[in-house]
Write a protein that binds this DNA or RNA. Sequence first.
DNA 1: CCCGGATGCGAACACCGTACGCTGGCCGCG
DNA 2: CGCGGCCAGCGTACGGTGTTCGCATCCGGG
Lengths: 245, 245
Amino acid sequence: MPPTPPEKQSTFPSVWTRPRPTREHPALSRDHIVAEALRLLDEEGIDALSMRRLGTRLNAGATSLYRHVANKDELIELAVDEIYGEIEAPVHPDPANWRTDMAGCAHSLRTTILRHPWLASVLGEMGMSYLGPNWMRASEATLNVLTTAGFPTDEADRALSTVVAYVTGMATSEAAWLNVLARSGQDERTMVEHLWPAAEEAAQEYPLLREGYAEQRGTDPRAAREEGFQYGLDRVLDGLETRLK
Amino acid sequence: MPPTPPEKQSTFPSVWTRPRPTREHPALSRDHIVAEALRLLDEEGIDALSMRRLGTRLNAGATSLYRHVANKDELIELAVDEIYGEIEAPVHPDPANWRTDMAGCAHSLRTTILRHPWLASVLGEMGMSYLGPNWMRASEATLNVLTTAGFPTDEADRALSTVVAYVTGMATSEAAWLNVLARSGQDERTMVEHLWPAAEEAAQEYPLLREGYAEQRGTDPRAAREEGFQYGLDRVLDGLETRLK
DNA sequence: CCCGGATGCGAACACCGTACGCTGGCCGCG
DNA sequence: CGCGGCCAGCGTACGGTGTTCGCATCCGGG
């Protein structure tokens, strides 16, 4: 009888089966951990992220992670700022085109959130880790768009907050919907169709809501989301434009 | 030696110590459960809400709650819509004053969220339970403000979404900050003062951010939040106003 | 070569949400 | 009045969670 293969037999107390303790390829590191956490989050959502699952995915024990990360919360904060690294903002903004520049930042933030819908689940518990390097970089760049457009520095701050609040508010509710969608495993179109009776039932006594629902019936929900976001963004930018006289 | 008091000795197998099974005052009901859950949430935040703790607070076993509520998630959804009942919206809006009416709705939504900061933690996981009766009532009333102001029905929907997105986005980040604050137990003023060095350190390479920070230094943070919200709200309403020509 | 700090990890603790089956009181029907 | 069924409440149990602690082992530097 051949000996059992030496793979993963470390619990069997024999010198011969003891695994060669050569470091697995790259060992464990904070960046490695965050990267794998992101992969897990994107694939299966926030509920799937547990220290144990993350550990096994890294061929490591759950508690080993604590050598590189203080908390699960800290881990998530790191992951979030990593995501913020995807936000694009113009380096040399054009004062004449500040609206399109700002619109670009806003769309970039929105698509970033929608690309990682689990973000919405944690935004409310962290503010948005305003001190992470990637968030600060994006903020500075967007602030630059506003100041070169002519906003005084203190007002540029508030204008940025306004846009960010609108975008995160909108994207958060969209992402929550995407989360529900992902859990149901259905197509957005069919999911809406399935939900329709309940919505109409609930809106029975509310004529304005009912009318709004009825008008949306049959349209592509994804396109409607996109268009709704654009509408609100245009209004916010309109409102800011009035301040530049 | 006197007998042990008959209170809560049901596990001791004696006829004499068995508690009189008279129904405690009101028994258990869904409304009762939701009300107590709200009390717990407001006092100690979202992390403190567990079925076991809620059960003991109601002098009941944890699993008894499941007779009246399907899930912890459903319980939270009920609690959230209960809170939405606090939102105020004018019943007979004045078309000439639609801006102040909308501003009132917006402020009411914001203060509602800030009064229950745990709301921010769950908004991202539920969209916002758009089908709850209280939310629908508030939506209908606010939609009424917009349509009587002159918005066509389909645009009123999008305008409402815009305002709601801005307010929830702003209030969410404020509430997250309040949550951090509550956990630290510190005063907002002193907490800001403590955080300052880290913020300035992090903003080292970002002149615009640094300048913005510097200008805020020493001001009352609560008033600044209030004023920042008002600024953005004014911009959003400005943007909507352009659509009424 | 050896030692000390860094690193991984197994076991343990205190919780969590919830499925299941029992008990005992209540209500309506015979 | 008696009784049978219904159902609220609950004890137990299962499989999971984040995190602490102490031990084993490895690696780099004197």
